[in-house]
Nucleic acid binder design. Structure first.
Lengths: 250, 250
DNA sequence: CGTATTTTTGACGGCGTTCAATGTAAGTGG
DNA sequence: CCACTTACATTGAACGCCGTCAAAAATACG
């Protein structure tokens, strides 16, 4: 599959058929249709840069990511921001946040997205009663801790080239597992260099310089608004990537 | 309460009465004595620098921290290490790890400690059957995610002085909540400058220089192997500390 | 007292930031 | 189809935080 332009990568997303199907959602897969209706679900579109969750105004509906990429971040007064998680459908680590979130952060879309809007209260009910969903959420949370733990190691201890390579390897690994749910080209990371900088505690200027070196080594290609991994093994070698911490995903 | 020497801070720890009491343990508080016996618990001492948990050799017993400080860390081949959590008794964030740990890390004591050794299998059983413990572990895990999230923001976006101040503020806050369980002086942080460096992604040399500035501003005192916070509010002002993310603790 | 650990200090270098400008592709409206 | 606008990527120069290396001083402990 080849995509000719960036806009296709970011915006030309395949649409699932319109009737709301639980199976298309990694959190609710397998839920009986009669229970699903209780949630009053509806599919909606969101532009890139839309807020999906804000702890100060939880609201009484929850938006579950069905297509596209989102991130969890914290923004400072001076405009600095730190991204603490990347999320996309089909990825276990992405599905636990909707109902409750213990900490000060928000969730924003990075690309154009489709979300399933459901009643928060009823989803919480369902999660309490349905042991499958409960288990799924527990595993999702464990995965989130594990990834956060690894990001901290990454940001705290690795130099820029290894740091960037490690993030790309992680995303690639998660994407492979989530493949059936992710509607963008293989090994395409739909992130801005600014996004990557915000996730890794760097500036976009420096990300750019380092990423150019990686490109010079045939490890990846650079597009406007995205990157394409050309040599995942080379990237993994560069940062001694070990996917063990993602084991809970599979 | 004043302590004259560091050895007292690190080693002169009050001992709970010898019969094993569930209430002294934040994970098992409230568990009926007859259930507690099933765990075959025994109190033991550990020197500073002892490994309490290693994912590659989980073993069939679990060591629950009862006194002293420990940390979760990852060590690299070249000796570099990243600490990803500080743990002490009475602190909710410290109690979920023992039974299962989804990621690649180990737990080591930082000071001399006392631990309660229990059967892993039976503790897991108990956690499954006892909803109080289950709830406690869930909250503990949430707290852990929340703190990890904040550490990532801290390491990724703050400069050294704010970064150190923020860590100290967090520990101070958690210590105040855990006070009845922590047997060391008020506002004493029994950490080496090397420990702090390993937690914040810095070198001990630079931690030292920054910490000296904080001391010059009457914010803290420096001891061998520990620090004493003299002006918590000043520290909080320096880094704009907001304890909201620790809300789940209380 | 002698030893080990930790703190402290100095010189030097570099990785990464800051500031600012330019280039370039995509989207919009006339 | 072109002018205008916006968003990213790219480049260069200057600066500085922080790491590296190495050694010395201070503190605690046996």
């Amino acid at each position: 599959m080849t995509l000719s332009t960036d806009s296709e990568l970011r915006h030309d997303i395949r649409r699932p058929s319109d009737p709301v199907q639980a199976d298309a959602c990694d959190l609710l897969a397998g839920v009986a249709p009669e229970h699903l209706v209780d949630l009053t679900p509806r599919l909606e579109s969101r532009n890139a840069g839309t807020e999906l969750f804000n702890p100060r105004e939880p609201g009484d509906s929850v938006q579950i990511l069905m297509e596209g990429w989102a991130c969890r971040d914290r923004t400072f007064g001076d405009g600095d921001r730190q991204i603490t998680a990347f999320m996309f459908p089909g990825d276990l680590a992405s599905c636990w946040t909707p109902i409750e979130s213990p900490f000060d952060h928000r969730v924003r879309t990075l690309t154009s997205c489709r979300v399933m809007v459901v009643s928060r209260e009823r989803l919480a009910d369902l999660a309490r009663r349905n042991s499958v969903i409960a288990t799924r959420r527990r595993r999702a949370m464990r995965t989130d801790v594990s990834i956060l733990n690894d990001w901290l190691v990454n940001v705290g201890r690795r130099k820029a080239p290894e740091r960037i390579a490690h993030l790309l390897c992680e995303l690639n690994h998660r994407l492979e597992i989530a493949r059936p749910h992710v509607y963008c080209g293989d090994r395409v990371i739909p992130l801005t260099q600014q996004d990557i900088a915000d996730a890794l505690g760097m500036t976009s200027v420096h990300v750019n310089r380092v990423v150019q070196k990686l490109r010079a080594n045939q490890l990846l290609e650079i597009r406007k608004g995205s990157m394409i991994l050309r040599d995942p093994h080379g990237l993994a070698r560069l940062c001694a990537f070990d996917s063990a911490y993602l084991g809970v995903l599979s």
